[in-house]
């Protein structure tokens, strides 16, 4: 193996500035995974035990909406975080995630992390803060799209 997982994690923006021992602890819950183009990473309703940090490739988050087909809500890229339904009960995914290209990612065992966070509130706060930041940013981008900025508006 060319690099230890904790070294890989230290280069991902999501973990920027995190203490080495915390990264090591989190790395203990993670493993590197690979998805072929078109592969399903998870499906709506699956048990949400994991989350991913994408290191390479593009992932589409969406749903199958009959009769329009597979609608993509957002695409995620290298450095982005995928999956947060593991944070709260009932721990079920709400959307589909599919690899639009070959994807390399680090998969984290959410259940393992939940236990570690419960045991170590400092780690829990740090990790939740990072998640909250991602969630807020994602929400802001989504809100921006709700404006339908390029739409036709009212015209004379």
């Amino acid at each position: 193996m060319p690099q230890q997982l904790d070294e890989v994690l230290a280069q991902i923006p999501f973990f920027d500035g995190m203490a080495e021992d915390e990264i090591a602890l989190i790395a203990g819950c993670g493993r590197n995974v690979h998805f072929d183009e078109g592969a399903t990473i998870f499906r709506q309703g699956d048990a949400a035990d994991d989350f991913y940090v994408i290191r390479h490739g593009t992932v589409a988050v969406g749903n199958f909406v009959p009769p329009r087909g597979e609608l993509v809500i957002e695409t995620l890229e290298a450095g982005d975080l995928l999956g947060w339904s593991w944070l709260f009960p009932p721990y079920r995914t709400h959307f589909d995630a599919r690899a639009l290209s070959p994807v390399r990612a680090t998969q984290f065992d959410g259940k393992c992390l939940r236990d570690k966070c419960a045991a170590d509130p400092a780690l829990g706060f740090d990790l939740m803060s990072r998640f909250a930041q991602v969630l807020i940013e994602r929400l802001q981008w989504t809100r921006l799209r709700l404006f339908d900025l390029y739409g036709n508006g009212h015209s004379v």
Partner: peptide, 23 residues
């Protein structure tokens, strides 16, 4: 290139353009 909303067969990015600035 990114779009606000897409249906198949779009294989490109979906999201707002300011997000592309980061990378």
């Amino acid at each position: 290139v990114t779009v606000d909303a897409a249906e198949p067969p779009w294989k490109g990015k979906v999201g707002v353009v300011p997000k592309l600035v980061a990378t």
